[in-house]
């Protein structure tokens, strides 16, 4: 079965491997039948709130990869909404000029409830971009002032019903996150995040429907093999696996 991975970070500076590591990353993805990836950038390379230059550096890596492998890579433009409306629009317009940039990536610079998200969502609406919002259950983490809880991601999606939102990290969002996402039809959840905790993928499918769950690995932080096994080990059946591993993301990203 071919696979589309909606959550990867092919440029990861931990080992100073540079852009060459991205080609290795794509080959590794290919060994698992992953024909297309969404590249989100090395979003924590400069800490949780990068400045405009740092942001451009991260996005330059993504743009380079999208241009180099247009058939294999969709890029998401990484944003720091706290830099302000003008900076957001400038970076979005710079990135969407490159074919293959199909989304915006939000990490932990701010909470998705914050007012600074408005220009981000307006830009997504104007250019038809998907927004991938990092999310994690904040019950134990206690960082909600800048770190998005699943309920915050859902609120964001409800405020902007014309924008397609990916709530990242199903495992981190947990049961409470899945329940928050019910009835929010412009939001899907990706299957990345933490160790492959048993039962959460099947639970999400039961509560949200198979069309609202998409495969994401978070590689290289995670192993493609493990990330795929979360789906294939969940006992969902081949049709549901194909939906989650490929079809849902393909439709969401409007890929051919």
């Amino acid at each position: 079965m071919t696979v589309l991975d909606a959550h990867t970070h092919p440029h990861f500076r931990e080992h100073q491997a540079g852009r060459a590591a991205a080609d290795v990353f794509l080959r590794e993805a290919g060994r698992y039948g992953i024909e297309h990836i969404v590249a989100l950038g090395d979003v924590l390379a400069f800490g949780r709130s990068p400045n405009a230059d740092q942001l451009r550096s991260i996005n330059d890596d993504t743009l380079w990869l999208v241009k180099r492998h247009p058939e294999q890579v969709t890029g998401f433009c990484y944003l720091n909404p706290t830099l302000g409306e003008r900076a957001v629009w400038q970076e979005v317009e710079r990135c969407v000029a490159v074919p293959g940039i199909r989304g915006l990536k939000l990490e932990v610079a701010n909470n998705a409830r914050d007012a600074c998200m408005r220009p981000v969502m307006k830009a997504a609406e104007r250019y038809g971009l998907v927004v991938l919002q990092h999310a994690w259950n904040m019950t134990k983490i206690k960082q909600r002032s800048f770190h998005t809880d699943p309920e915050d991601a859902v609120l964001l999606a409800r405020r902007f019903p014309n924008v397609r939102v990916i709530m990242a990290h199903l495992t981190g969002c947990g049961v409470r996150g899945v329940l928050a996402a019910r009835g929010c039809d412009n939001l899907v959840v990706d299957t990345s995040g933490a160790a492959p905790e048993a039962g959460i993928v099947a639970y999400a499918v039961e509560k949200l429907g198979v069309h609202r769950v998409i495969y994401g690995s978070d590689a290289p932080i995670r192993d493609f093999a493990v990330a795929i096994a979360r789906i294939t080990g969940a006992g969902l059946g081949r049709d549901a696996e194909r939906r989650i591993l490929r079809d849902n993301a393909r439709e969401l990203l409007r890929l051919p």
Partner: peptide, 17 residues
Amino acid sequence: HTPFLETAAAPAKFARA
């Protein structure tokens, strides 16, 4: 780490290692 983790994930680390 069954049943906490998806059992299939453990052998998956080895299948194409």
